[in-house]
Amino acid sequence: MPAYTKKQQLIDALTERIESGQYPPGAKLPSGTELCAEFGVSRQVVRSAIDWLKARGLVDGAPGAGVFVRAPNR
């Protein structure tokens, strides 16, 4: 299951960056191309990880504009 491992590594890294404030609320995540290059994964793995983050309410996608960190629900 290498794809699952790579996806989980990407999810963990992005979640850590969001939670640590490296990517603060409103920040735009790196592009899919940049994430592919940084993590050595396919576009499908990046899309799948972003979909997971969206489902958990950590990010929102804006068609044509990118993916942005959501403000925490408090």
Results as ranks from 00 to 15, higher is better:
Val46His: 11
Thr15Val: 07
Ala27Asn: 08
Gln44Tyr: 15
Lys28Phe: 05
Val69Arg: 06
Leu10Glu: 03
Gly64Glu: 02
Gln44Thr: 15
Val59Lys: 02
Ser20Lys: 10
Ala27His: 15
Gln8Ala: 12
Ala65Phe: 14
Trp52Ser: 11
Phe39Thr: 10
Gly21His: 03
Asp60Arg: 15
Lys28Met: 08
Val67Phe: 09
Ile18Lys: 03
Leu14Thr: 02
Ser31Thr: 15
Ala71Leu: 08
Ile50Ser: 05
Ala65Gln: 13
Gln44Pro: 03
Val46Pro: 12
Pro24Trp: 04
Met1Cys: 10
Gly21Glu: 09
Gly21Phe: 01
Val46Met: 07
Asp51Trp: 02
Ile18Val: 03
Val59Leu: 01
Ser48Ile: 01
Arg70Asn: 12
Leu14Gln: 04
Ser20Ile: 03
Gly66Arg: 00
Thr5Ile: 07
Ala49His: 00
Pro25Tyr: 01
Leu53Glu: 09
Cys36Gln: 15
Ser31Pro: 13
Tyr4Glu: 06
Arg17Gln: 11
Ala65Thr: 09
Lys7Tyr: 01
Val41Ile: 07
Glu19Thr: 08
Leu53Pro: 06
Thr5Asn: 02
Thr5Tyr: 00
Pro63Val: 04
Asp60Tyr: 15
Leu35Gln: 14
Gly32Trp: 06
Ala65Gly: 05
Arg43Cys: 10
Gln44Met: 13
Gly57Tyr: 14
Asp51Glu: 15
Leu58Val: 07
Val59Pro: 10
Thr15Gly: 03
Lys54Ser: 12
Glu34His: 09
Ile50His: 09
Ala55Arg: 13
